[in-house]
Amino acid sequence: MSTAAPRRTGTPRTGGTRRRLSRGLRRTGLYAAGTAVLVFAVFPVYWMVSTALKPVSEIFARQPRLLPGAPTLDHFDRVVNGQLIPGVNFWQFLANSLFVTLGSVAVAAVMSLLAAVAIARFRFRLRTGLILLLMLIQMVPMEAMIISIFINFRHLQDVSGVQLLGNLTGIVIVYTAVALPITIMMLRGFVAAVPRELEEAAAIDGAGNWTVFWQILMPLVAPGLVAASIFAFITAWNEFIVALTFLGRSTENYTLPLTLSYYFGRFGTEWGAIMAASTLLTIPVMIFFLFVQRRMVAGLTMGAVKG
């Protein structure tokens, strides 16, 4: 502070022009920096879409062009109507991805709502333990557990004949479990924020537990439920390592991320198609992200930021 002080006290004497000039410079600098950040963030996404729309000759031109000269939907057509993996078409992969994401989201939503009500509305012996468990379990990386989960599912298959590897059921189960901790923690705040007097008033008016739940709690918790569900959706939609491990060679069950990785491994030079498929994978996430971005900050940092 001692070094900065004399310089600053001198400023007023130099008059308004210089100050205005330096403020103008400062503003320009800020805008320039903001533009640079914007370009850094957006450009790779732009390049993905732009490549997907270029004809092959332009993709591999010696001088790459920023804009597609002759935009074409050929790559999208090939991805959607052709076969990324021989014998299976795009709609099958889309259906697989939708099944695992929507399946896990639906189950996780119900289970996490129940658990969130328990945590927010009741005091019970396991409560603190459960909260700690939820926080800790989301820290243990899937990359570390994947071998054990795989072995467990194999054993289950041998012992009981229940098939959870090579199909989508096992994936739904794992995605649900992975989504639960964070969805519960997100919902908990919403449930706690519902005034208890409201429920009590309804109960006095003769509403049963079920009515209180649907008529009072649900409408107020719904936004949280939507946010938590979208969060779970994005996680499941993007998930890669579990799908890679569980699905192995049963290509007809592949989810979209796995399909993309497989296609890249086989046809690594088809950049038009790869970028078109990447674009299709990215679009749903971007749409959902618009809705939950703020919630996501609050959910992940849990109260450190009042987002």
Binding site: V37, P44, W47, L281
Partner: peptide, 21 residues
Amino acid sequence: VGMMLAWATPAISASLIFRWL
């Protein structure tokens, strides 16, 4: 909003984009 595009891009897509870049 621009940054959200980077944030929302799935890991697979992002990796493929940079592999291509």
